[in-house]
Amino acid sequence: MKKLWTLCVTLLSVVTMASAQTMSCCAKPAAAPNATEAFAMLASNEDFSGGHDAPLPFTYQGNGEMIEFKTTDGQTSRAFAIKSNIRSDKYLLIIHEWWGLNDYIKQEAARFAKELPGVNVLALDLYDGQVAADADQAGKLMQGVKTDRAQAIIKGALLYAGPQAQIASIGWCFGGGWSIQTALLAGSKAKACVAYYGMPEKDVTKLKTLNTDVLFVFAKQDKWINEQVVEQFKKDMATAKKSLTVKSYDADHAFANPSNPKYNKAYAEEAHAASLAYLKKGLKLK
């Protein structure tokens, strides 16, 4: 019996050692989350989700239509489109907030289409048709976004725009980070990029590939995309030798969203005017 016990202990020791060696030599450590995934993780933070009150009821009634296009993962996606009245290779890609492609985003698309004549406006849908009605649902949708799928949608939109396209991008919150990713994916086609209080790209190697400068709209009272995040982005862009303009406002996260109680109309209009002027310059509009 003693020999049998000794044998069992010895076997258990060998298995344990083998498992440890396998873990240390062969197992891959979990990959660090990228910028957009890191921002999505905030959805589990009660302070973050609690700071986003449900959008006020609103129905958009105006120009535009939903279009469908192929994505690079063999699927399809839809976008809200307002096409230029004249033939144009200039495009503004709009990325929605964590609520999804709702009627507020469609209204923003219509506003930019009116203010940027000669530009095709596409409001992309990174939630594949889902729209949140409350913060809990929005958090789940944002966390559920797979990087590969979101990139496939953006790449599909770039292919839809065509080989001669000149691309500008803009987004808020969740969409702010993805606006920067859109500019990176657009490569040489990228002409302008606006990001409202979104998570910046942290990989300097990627930032070096940017073909455009970036306009970053920053809310000083934002607890998440805070001063530290912005200062690091400034350093990273400087290291990458890329131009960055930061517009700061003494407001809170989502101050530019008219459906949010934290909406600050004066600052929102000022930021919009700055964004509009920047987009016109990047797309070389008169």
Rank of each mutant, 00 (worst) to 15 (best):
230 V>P: 04
80 F>G: 10
28 K>E: 13
37 E>W: 02
241 K>G: 04
151 Q>N: 13
112 F>T: 10
227 E>A: 15
11 L>P: 00
38 A>C: 01
43 A>N: 01
280 K>R: 14
205 T>I: 11
52 H>V: 06
22 T>N: 13
163 P>F: 15
261 P>G: 05
81 A>H: 11
145 V>N: 11
183 A>Q: 04
166 Q>E: 13
272 H>W: 09
21 Q>H: 00
256 A>S: 07
20 A>F: 15
111 R>F: 09
45 N>H: 05
28 K>S: 09
274 A>S: 15
136 D>P: 09
276 L>M: 06
62 G>K: 10
55 P>I: 00
164 Q>W: 04
208 K>T: 07
231 E>I: 06
125 D>N: 12
68 E>T: 08
19 S>I: 14
240 A>I: 08
68 E>D: 08
138 A>D: 05
139 G>T: 03
33 P>K: 04
212 T>G: 03
29 P>M: 04
222 D>C: 00
286 K>R: 02
67 I>G: 12
51 G>Q: 05
13 S>C: 09
68 E>V: 03
135 A>M: 14
253 H>R: 04
100 G>R: 03
115 E>D: 15
167 I>T: 00
148 D>W: 09
25 C>G: 13
29 P>H: 02
46 E>P: 04
258 P>R: 01
139 G>R: 11
229 V>K: 05
77 S>A: 15
159 L>G: 00
33 P>S: 06
169 S>Q: 14
166 Q>L: 08
225 I>E: 15
114 K>L: 07
124 L>S: 03
19 S>R: 11
226 N>D: 14
134 D>T: 04
32 A>F: 01
31 A>K: 12
178 W>T: 14
62 G>M: 11
182 T>R: 03
106 K>S: 08
221 Q>D: 11
111 R>H: 06
251 A>I: 06
142 M>L: 14
242 K>C: 14
116 L>M: 08
161 A>I: 04
203 D>P: 02
109 A>I: 08
25 C>D: 06
116 L>K: 07
108 E>A: 08
169 S>H: 12
213 D>G: 15
183 A>M: 01
40 A>Y: 02
243 S>N: 12
